[in-house]
Design a protein around this nucleic acid. Structure first.
Lengths: 219, 219
DNA sequence: CGTCGCGTTGACAAGGTTCAAATTTGGTGG
DNA sequence: CCACCAAATTTGAACCTTGTCAACGCGACG
């Protein structure tokens, strides 16, 4: 486990907003599928994604999984108000993160007016996402869920209408409360309806052909 | 619309924790089914429930409803970080609330160290509930959902194992991502399995007969 | 070149929804 | 206080969306 310790300004992103000045941090790369932290573990560190993707999830005793959210480059994750993590975080693909100690970050935050507001804003943003996702999970059909997922990912991607998904069909399914087969079928349906296209040989490069149509499906 | 303006210490509960000293507030009673505030409206006031029950929810364009949470006596609701409410709040039954201006409350909070932490704690608690509820909505079966609901309500009731639900089967269904018929059937199943009993002539007075069994169902 | 992970597709099963009807409960007005 | 009506709840039956199980194809990788 190699960690290069550095001290430099945080990149553009949520951590920069929070700290506003150089924060000492380490960089680390997690290989695809490895755990960053587990549910119930001490929440001593905070993570900023440089590249890659992270999934955070909860499990039922028999293994059923619900993914709360996907975190992409620029996103921060792992900051808790309490002492322990409330869910598990794993690298979806090889993921490079910048790690800061929670205490150090919180001290920085304490020292400036905006910092506190930013912290609250961060939690609020998570809550807002969770509220929207509850509506999706509880009340949308499979097709609506998948359409909403595509639009959400599209908004977070740099190139509009064109995306390369880091996560598998199973990940998407566990995010949307479906099975991977249902996700696959929904994508095929959307492809047949000319609302999207698969790019290249892989099935993770998607091009949205009809964002309006997808938005209508989303209800 | 009659509002009696008073100035007195907040009752035991979250508002008291937040303010820590007398907050000027008004009392008001909402009749069953009336709206306290709507999604998108300005979030100028904060509410503390004295008696009754509140549901907060989001709607899809075609009327499908997802209830985020039920608020019971002692709970606070309506406090937003942004300027507008992100969901609608309605009185489930006749509900008495204490209303405070958001600005006044936030000023009070600004003036004390603990206040800020409490505000963050409040949002975090909401987020935590949302995370657990996403797991329920996305991955639990109808029976597991209803069992979880009963246990959640039981924990928030004063008399353990005995509760009188303020909300209808439809409300429960919209909270759990089910139809009211499925909720009714699940309750009948649990009654047949001797895990609960209906008390009196109404179908909203429940007695939990086997909390362990319910907890096992909850997975 | 075989194996493994991932994705798609088909056939079938099942849990949950929809539609409908009967019953109970609660509220309202006389 | 009682009668009556509307709302809520339960229950049944048919249906449908989604899940389950299985087969197959494809590409990556050893």
């Amino acid at each position: 486990m190699l960690i290069r310790t550095t001290s430099r300004p945080a990149v553009d992103g949520q951590l920069a907003v929070l700290a506003g000045e150089p924060v000492s941090c380490s960089e680390f790369t997690y290989r695809r599928g490895t755990e960053v932290f587990g549910e119930g573990e001490a929440a001593d560190y905070v993570y900023l994604i440089v590249s890659g993707a992270i999934r955070t999830y909860k499990l039922l005793t028999d293994g059923r999984r619900q993914i709360n959210s996907f975190h992409l480059p620029g996103d921060m994750f792992g900051l808790e108000n309490g002492a322990v993590h409330r869910f598990t975080a794993e690298a979806v693909i090889e993921t490079q993160v910048r790690i800061t100690s929670r205490r150090g970050l919180l001290e920085k935050i304490e020292n400036q007016e905006e910092g506190r507001a930013s912290l609250l804003t961060l939690v609020t943003r998570n809550l807002q996402h969770a509220e929207n996702h509850m509506l999706l999970l509880g009340r949308k059909t499979a097709l609506e869920k998948v359409a909403a997922f595509l639009l959400e990912m599209d908004e977070r991607q740099s190139h509009p209408n064109k995306m390369s998904l880091p996560m598998s069909r199973r990940d998407i399914a566990d995010y949307l409360g479906l099975t991977l087969e249902t996700v696959s079928r929904a994508l095929s349906t959307l492809r047949n309806d000319k609302m999207l296209r698969f790019d290249g040989q892989t099935q993770r490069q998607l091009v949205l052909l009809d964002r309006k149509g997808l938005a209508q499906l989303d209800a």
